[in-house]
Amino acid sequence: MTELWYVVGFAVVGVAFVFLVIGLSWLITHRNRGDEHKGRPYESGIDTFGDTWGRFGISYYIYALLFVAFDIEIVFIYLWALVFRDLLLGGFVAMLVFVLILLVGLGYAWRKGVLTWR
């Protein structure tokens, strides 16, 4: 329970620090509305066209999917690593089978060309 309070306290103080400094900056700096050009998005000097929050390349999405699969695997591997000295050979074989199944998935993605950036 103490650990949780440390983390929460740290987060609260960190967030408060950022907002205090940004607030201080807001307080002491000048404010100039400018004309409408000041607020335009900076896209190398060209007025923006098309929908910014529109459709986007799918390759980013597939990396995220792969990440989810492997991240869950990592959680299991860490727990296994913690108790490995009690398991030894049995644990080694079990984890080998587990990782091999995942590697089949990685191999499939590799063969499908997902890992090659397009």
């Binding site: 900076y42 910014t52 929050w53 986007f56 990396y63």
Partner: peptide, 24 residues
């Protein structure tokens, strides 16, 4: 995402893809 700028969006998505990949 929040910046309403195509370069920002590209940078944000790139950083997500890169950091997510290297986190493994």
């Amino acid at each position: 995402w929040a910046s309403f700028n195509k370069y920002s969006l590209l940078g944000g998505l790139r950083s997500a893809a890169q950091m997510v990949s290297y986190e493994i």
